[in-house]
Each structure stands twice: as C-alpha cells, then as structure tokens.
C-alpha cells in the first residue's frame, strides 16, 4: 500500500508553495463550515477543486480516492438522517419506525456537502504536495523542527512497520496461531503480534535517539534546510486574502445576516 496520497506531476498547482495550499485549504474549510448553505460547498467544489484537479492532472486519482472515502459515509448519513429524524415535520413516507422527512434529507444534504468539500480540499492538498516540502516550508514558517521530524519520520517508517507486522503475523501463524474464532479469541491472538512489534520499537528508538543527539537535533540554533521551497509575493498576498475571507465568513455567520 502507498504511504501518502502524493502524486508527482509537473503542474503549476504542484509548484505552488505548500503553505499557500495549506492556508487555502484551511480557509475554504472554515468558510464552508461557517456559511451553512449547501450550495456554497457545492460552489467551492465547482470553482476551486474541479479546476485545480484538472490543471494538476490528478482528477482521476482524486475522484477514486474521494469516492472510496466518502461513499460509505454519505450512504450511512442519508440512511440515518433521511429515515430517523424525530425533529422532522414534513413526512414524505413512513414505514414502521422509519420516517422519510424533508427536514432530515435537508440536514443530510447540509452535513454531506460540508464533509465532501472537506475531504476533496484536503485530498487535493495531499495529492499535489510532497510531504517533505510541506514540512520544510512549515518549519521555515515557525513550526518546531521536532514536529516536522516526527511527521516525516513516521511517514517513512509506516511501510517498514507494516512489513514487520505482516512477517510477525505469518511467523506466529506458522507456529499455530489461530486468527479465527470469537472476538475475544481474536483479540488474544493480537498479543503475540504486538509484543514483538513493540520490543523491536524500543531497540530502534535507542539507536536513533543517540544518532540524532550526535547530530545536534536538540540544538536551538536556526536550522539550515537542504531543500529550497519557492515562494512569491503574489502567494504571500494570496495567503492573507484567504485568511481575510475566512475571518469575514465567520463574522458574517455570527452576525446572523444569513438566517
């Protein structure tokens, strides 16, 4: 399985400064959650996400990932809120305890449109942004190097851990471990997997922390980065515009002008 969603393409969206994309994504999410109109979320998807996906050439990947993540949630959402919405008054159909109400369906539409916008925006950021350059530019903007170390290093060791877990599981099965049976039995079967995983983790960590200390990891001096992430004045201005839009949407939402 792949570690991250990142797809390398030579596109202008990929070349944008990662912080610009992050600020844009966070602002859009705030706007979509502040202005509770489902068509605002739909508009964001049509005006921002779809063109950006087409320009970056990652539309297919975005669509397949988004469907895989969103479809189960949206189906459950429509089933829960569409059928069981006790606050609803306009009943369209009734079947036993389940009532299809207009209010319930509208509620599901509101929640569903926001979750869809959230997933599409964050997937687009992750697909078009190399995690390493995201970490570099965040560190340059004041994020603790400890934070970027933890995130980058975790992304690298997860595949190794998955392989290790698989081989431990196979080894234990060869010794007669049964993975079937009732849930309590299956939970007990996890123990012989987890203990060797965690023992291995302790020995790794010892070596790594000594190596990090020897290279001045905890030094508080300004770190020099090997990677140069391009930035521009236009993007710096764009970031502030996005933040201003997000703040404006929150003010608008609390001022009650929308309802």
């Amino acid at each position: 399985m792949t570690t991250t969603f990142y797809v390398d393409r030579p596109s202008p969206i990929h070349r944008l400064n990662p912080v610009t994309k992050l600020v844009a994504m966070l602002s859009i999410i705030v706007i979509v959650f502040a202005i509770q109109l489902w068509w605002v979320a739909a508009l964001v998807v049509l005006v921002v996400v779809v063109p950006a996906a087409v320009i970056s050439g990652t539309g297919g990947r975005l669509l397949s990932l988004a469907l895989k993540l969103l479809l189960p949630i949206l189906i459950v959402l429509v089933l829960i809120q569409g059928l069981f919405f006790p606050e609803g008054t306009t009943v369209l159909a009734q079947w036993g305890p389940a009532r299809v109400t207009v209010e319930g369906l509208l509620f599901a539409l509101g929640i569903g449109s926001r979750i869809t916008a959230l997933v599409l925006c964050s997937l687009l950021l992750l697909i078009t942004t190399n995690p390493a350059s995201l970490m570099t530019s965040l560190s340059k903007n004041g994020m603790s190097p400890k934070m970027s170390y933890v995130i980058s290093s975790t992304l690298q060791i997860i595949p190794a851990f998955q392989t290790r877990a698989e081989s431990i599981l196979l080894a234990q099965q060869a010794r007669g471990l049964k993975l079937r049976g009732n849930p309590i039995r299956r939970i007990r079967a996890l123990l012989p997997l987890i203990s060797p995983l965690i023992l291995g983790m302790f020995t790794d960590v010892e070596e790594r922390s000594t190596a990090m200390e020897a290279r001045g990891f905890s030094s508080t001096a300004t770190h020099t980065s090997l990677m140069i992430v391009p930035d521009s004045v236009v993007q710096r201005v764009a970031r502030w515009v996005f933040v201003a839009l997000a703040v404006a949407s929150v003010v608008l939402s609390f001022s009650g002008l929308l309802s």
Binding site: V150, T154, I157, I158, F161, I198, D204, V205, S209, M212
Partner: peptide, 16 residues
C-alpha cells in the same frame, strides 16, 4: 530527544 525518537514508532504502532 529520547522521547521524540519514540513518538514516530508509537504512531506507527497505532496505525498498523
């Protein structure tokens, strides 16, 4: 630093 080195492995354990 010793704790920071532990965190990524712990996260990997969580996820795996």
């Amino acid at each position: 630093t010793a704790t920071i080195a532990l965190v990524p492995v712990a996260i990997a354990v969580n996820i795996v």
